[in-house]
Write a protein that binds this DNA or RNA. Structure first.
Length: 531
RNA sequence: GGCUGGGUAGCUCAGUUGGUGAGAGCGCACGACUCAUAAUCGUGAGGUCGAGGGUUCGAAUCCCUCCCCAGCUACCA
């Protein structure tokens, strides 16, 4: 495999200080499903994720814990972020850390290049600095002071006056890219997806961009500027560069040429601006090809509001996988949320879909088909005889589903593609109930019975292939009784021809999605202020 | 305040460029069946498509005004 077109997809790198929640998990799963789909259709696929480890906040928390920032990051990567990927069955091809030499070297080369080309210049950064917070504040972070500070602008957190400080910084000429970016959005309307995200960005850029301060000299936990080691690079520029350094920017020309540019940067809409404005501007300045798409997905809503730790609605991925398993996590968020829109999460909803769709729908379908082949044919898959119109409907759907789903996934329509495949689950359950193979068995019409079960068997095999990117564990289990080898090696766009790898004899298996006791399902948290 | 998106059956949501009596899943009621994880299949009840105007032969779908909800309003990520 891997002889087809390049499909390089990225997720944001995790800020190591964060605590993993289902929002991180959602992004990773979506990227992983798309990557697995492309990989299984033969594309030269590369899924990248990693961690963002520089910056003042990490330096500060590391110091508070009495360790070096690198030790702090090492600990979090091992304890939090690698486990997140394992928990959700993410098959990433690489995991880059911004503290790795390959990254730091590439970043230095990149900024030196921009400096040499005249896109970076020294300037004065002026801002309101809060001594308590030890950082600069935006106008919007300030409030009117009260009491002894009445009439002054004070920090919203410390309620003390801020100081107007000037710092000598290096700036990137972002302002020069206002028009080139608008041209880009115009020329390539699907550069930013979905349209709602694009509208946000276009409106923002139309107001005009100001140059971006890209260095700091007040702390040193970051990548030093090659021409002025007193400054470290602004963490966002540092972080964005991971997409390039991970695939060999400035170091491995052949590898870089193979992967670059990315087909898709998948990000949450909170960081869309960095990816759809600053990042393409940096790439334009460097003369590098731009990514094909930046996709801003929606929020996970709990109780009607963006999930939030401070409102006590934050949920850890393991809370869900401990109860329902990783496949259910993956399926639920891919199926229930219109990709690109915000989506509501509730325990009641995931429990209902788990039972109705995974357990009663797909899992039970596999059970009943295998059970009947075992019961009526001792497990030997029967040949199909004369095909009736009812059989034809099923067989046609099996034949059409791969292309129909493929079209959706190529358009990043994950929930649409999943729904397309799921039609087969529903049709097969209906087909079996209507054909009543158990009644046919009593009549002694073995030929007809064989045709029915052969048809159903073709269907569940196709499902094992098609659903593999979404629910890999269950599909691997099902495939182990149906076919030879690894299901991921069956070309997904030819899933209807899976029978070329079929095993002649099947056996029954434990339920793919065993029922979950309602008492194990937690109550959905309510946003704090609503409680 | 400005910007973006949303307000459609009890719940979660679809509804292409306006056109047969407004849809799906879940939930609920009734019925069929027994291969299967007490699973499956069928039928049915249920909606002033946020409010009010307007354009049109005809609008959930276009225009205007308003109400409500969420998010964003850049150098912490």
């Amino acid at each position: 495999m891997a002889t087809g077109a390049s499909f390089f997809i990225t997720t944001p790198i995790f800020y190591v200080n964060d605590v993993p929640h289902i929002g991180h998990g959602y992004t990773e799963v979506a990227a992983d499903v798309l990557a697995r789909w492309h990989r299984q259709r033969g594309d030269d696929t590369f899924l990248l994720t990693g961690t963002d480890e520089h910056g003042q906040k990490i330096l500060r928390t590391a110091t508070e814990h009495g360790v070096t920032p690198k030790e702090w990051a090492d600990r979090l990567v091992e304890d939090a972020w690698h486990p997140l990927l394992r928990t959700l069955d993410i098959a990433n091809d690489d995991f880059i850390r911004t503290t790795q030499p390959r990254h730091e070297a590439g970043v230095r080369r990149f900024v030196q290049d921009l400096y040499d080309k005249g896109y970076i210049y020294p300037g004065e950064f002026e801002g309101y600095y809060c001594v308590g917070c030890e950082e600069y504040k935006q106008e919007s972070d300030l409030v009117e002071g009260t009491g002894e500070f009445a009439g002054q602008r004070v920090c919203a957190i410390h309620s003390k006056p801020v100081e107007l400080l000037k710092e000598r910084n290096y700036f990137f000429k972002l302002s020069e890219f206002t028009q080139p970016l608008l041209d880009l959005y115009e020329r390539q309307p699907d550069f930013i997806r979905p349209d709602s995200a694009r509208n946000e960005v276009v409106q923002f850029v139309r107001q005009g961009l100001t140059d971006l301060s890209i260095s700091r000299s007040s702390f040193d936990w970051g990548i030093k500027l090659p021409w002025d080691p007193a400054h470290v690079l602004y963490v966002w520029v540092d972080a964005l560069m991971n997409y390039a350094t991970a695939v060999g920017y400035g170091d491995a020309a052949a590898a870089f040429a193979r992967r670059w540019p990315p087909q898709m940067h998948l990000v949450g809409k909170d960081i869309l601006r960095f990816h759809a404005v600053i990042w393409p501007a940096l790439l334009m300045a460097a003369g590098l090809p731009l990514p094909e798409h930046v996709f801003g997905h929606g929020w996970l809503l709990v109780g009607g509001e963006k999930m939030s730790k401070s409102k006590l609605t934050g949920i850890a991925p393991t809370q869900i996988t401990d109860v329902f398993g990783s496949d259910a996590f993956r399926y639920y968020f891919m199926r229930a949320i219109s990709f690109g829109h915000d989506g509501s999460f509730s325990w009641e909803d995931i429990a209902a879909r788990y039972e109705a769709e995974l357990a009663n729908g797909f899992g039970n379908l596999a059970s009943r088909v295998l059970a009947m082949i075992v019961k009526y044919f001792d497990g030997t898959v029967p040949e199909a005889g004369d095909v009736t119109p009812a059989d034809r409907v099923v067989l046609d759907l099996v034949g059409q589903a791969p292309a129909a789903a493929d079209a959706r996934f190529l358009d990043f329509d994950i929930n649409g593609g999943t729904a397309e495949i799921w039609r087969l689950v529903d049709v097969l359950n209906g087909y079996i109930t209507e054909q009543e193979p158990w009644a046919v068995a009593k009549t002694g019409d073995i030929a007809r019975l064989g045709t029915i079960l052969n048809t159903a068997w073709r269907g569940i095999g196709a499902l094992a292939v098609l659903l593999s990117p979404i629910i890999p564990k269950a599909c691997a289990t099902l495939w182990s009784v149906l076919g030879e080898g690894d299901v991921r090696d069956v070309t997904i766009t030819a899933a209807d021809r899976w029978t070329e790898r079929a095993r002649p004899v099947v056996h029954t298996i434990a339920p793919l999605f065993p029922r979950v006791d309602a008492s194990e399902v937690p109550a959905t948290p309510v946003p704090r202020h609503q409680a």
